[in-house]
Every structure is written in C-alpha cells, then in structure tokens.
Design a protein around this nucleic acid. Structure first.
Lengths: 147, 147
DNA sequence: TCTTGAAGCTATAGGTACTAGAGACATTAG
DNA sequence: CTAATGTCTCTAGTACCTATAGCTTCAAGA
C-alpha cells in the first residue's frame, strides 16, 4: 500500500493533483490508515498512470472519464475509445509537423545570430503559416489545426 | 482592414480571445473605425496566427511573448535573442521527442483496439504502462514518469 | 430610406485543470 | 524522544480562456 506521496512519485503526478482527481471522481476514494492518511493499491496506481498519460496525450478530463467508464464496463464495444484515440493521433501528428518547422527556424536564427543582428527574424512567418496546419481551422481546443 | 470577426475567422481564434490577447498586451491596440470598432491589418493577422499556433503547440503565453519580442525588436543584441531562441529550441525539441513517443503509443492503441470489446482492448493497459512511454515522456517536469 | 438582424462594444462572471498556502495532525529517521 | 518530513482539510489563486448581459454600430434587403 502506497501513501499519496509515494503514489505521486510512482505515477508522476503531484500530490494535490491526486486529491483533485479524487475530488472530481476520477479516482475512487481510497482506504485510509489508522491516522486518516490515504492508502493506495496497485490498481489505483494503474488507474492514475492511465489518467496521467491520457492527459499527456491531450485528452480532456471528460474524455478520460469516458475511457475509464468503458474499461470499467468491459462488455461495451471499444469503438468509442478508438474514435477518441484516432482524433488525438491526427492532432499529435499535426503538432509534430509544426514543431519541426519551428525547430528548423530557431536553429537557423541561432546560427545567424553568430554574425550580427536578427534583422531577418522569421519566427512569426514560420509559425503563422497555415500551410503546416493540415486543413480545417477554427474548431475547438483539442482538435485545432487537425481534421 | 479586417473587423475583429473576420480576423478571428482568418486566424482561427475566437473573438473574445482576440480581445483578451489585446488586454494582456500580446496584441497591440488596433486602430478603430469611426464607430469605435477595431480594425486590423495583415500584420496583426500574421501575429495572431502565430500566437494561435504557438498556443496550439502548448507554449505558455509568456514564452510566446518572448518569441514575439524576437521579431518586435530585431535590432536588439544577438546575445539576448540567442538566449530566448536557445531556450525555446530545447523546449521544442523536448516536445517533439515526447509527441513522437505518444504518437507511437496512440498508433499501437488504435491497432490493438481495432476489433472486439473492451475486454480485449488494451487501451487502458497501454496507456498506463510506463514501459511504453519511450524517451521524452515526462519532459515537462523532472519527476514525472519516475522509475 | 427605413428597418432588422448580425456583428461589434464594455464589463463581469464562470469554467477547466490545476497549484499554492495555512495551520493542524501523523509518521519516521536518528 | 525529538526533529523533520509527510499528510490532512480548506480556501484562494493562477493561466487561459469562454459566456452572458445590455448596449451600439453597420450592412443589406424591402
């Protein structure tokens, strides 16, 4: 059984964040020690690691709640989870493309910087170019710049 | 000259967000029409598209402010610019590494989830398994995905 | 020209996902 | 046993928007 601090280290999540996840119902209320401290088992650690990775992937907490409920009721089809994952995948690919372009421009700037001023800074041009977006623009947060 | 609504459509940013960016000094105060409506030129549109893309890539507004200062003051000393660019470059590289790992994870998820019910679906397992993280996972804070 | 409906204005409040702080109790290393 | 660290609850604050209210301006059709 892990205390909340150990769990946080194991899963890579800060302690107040764990308590916050419990508060909003993403994590079940854990057992308590004689001194009222939270005690977590391996299953809780698994669940928290899942939440943390999904957040890293850009899933909003509500989507994570849905995914968890799908796994909590395994008789359901997985198509809903697959749809969410596929959406996130295209968003991730678009981000990688734009970051790679920005990386190239920053490297060019740093090289140029070795010789004079940055009079021809093109950072804005590089990152304001919609060509790197894919297509649709102006959707909502999670899927911006991704079909 | 664009009105704020047209600008929002062009750059993929909601109208209240544009006003918010102006309020916090990320966008300069624009000209106004006779009837007090904001009017934007192509330069403002470029700048807003840049902000939006940088936000999409996960840069905090303060980092964006730094990046914009590179192009706002091209005459500034290269040393200062170099510091900003180098800082941002390492942030960009870390993001690319992490996103690439996450892309692999998502692709694996989708493949494994292609058929069947949640009972066979390894979405939760894959996403809670630190072994499948790859490198850049946890770049945001030093302690995430700890051993 | 009038009108009507979308789009703009300011100001304020609310939302998501945390994060930090205070002050008290619990646990553990020396 | 004591000192240091960890955990408890609670409240408040942050970053970054987003929605609402109540008003004014603009543009296009009758």
């Amino acid at each position: 059984m892990l205390t909340i601090g150990k769990l946080g280290i194991a899963a890579g999540v800060k302690v107040p964040t764990i308590r916050y996840y419990e508060q909003i119902g993403l994590l079940p209320t854990p057992d308590r020690s004689a001194g009222n401290q939270r005690l977590y088992n391996a299953k809780a650690q698994h669940r928290l690691a899942f939440i943390r990775h999904a957040r890293d992937l850009g899933f909003p907490l509500e989507a994570i709640r849905d995914l968890l409920s799908l796994s909590d009721t395994p008789e359901q089809y997985c198509a809903a989870a697959d749809v969410i994952a596929t959406e996130q995948l295209s968003a991730v690919k678009a981000r990688i493309a734009r970051l790679t372009a920005l990386q190239a421009e920053l490297e060019r700037m740093i090289t140029q910087c070795a010789k004079g001023t940055i009079a021809d800074c093109r950072v804005i041009e590089v990152l304001s170019d919609h060509e790197l977006c894919g297509e649709g623009h102006g959707a909502r947060t999670a899927t911006r710049c991704a079909p």
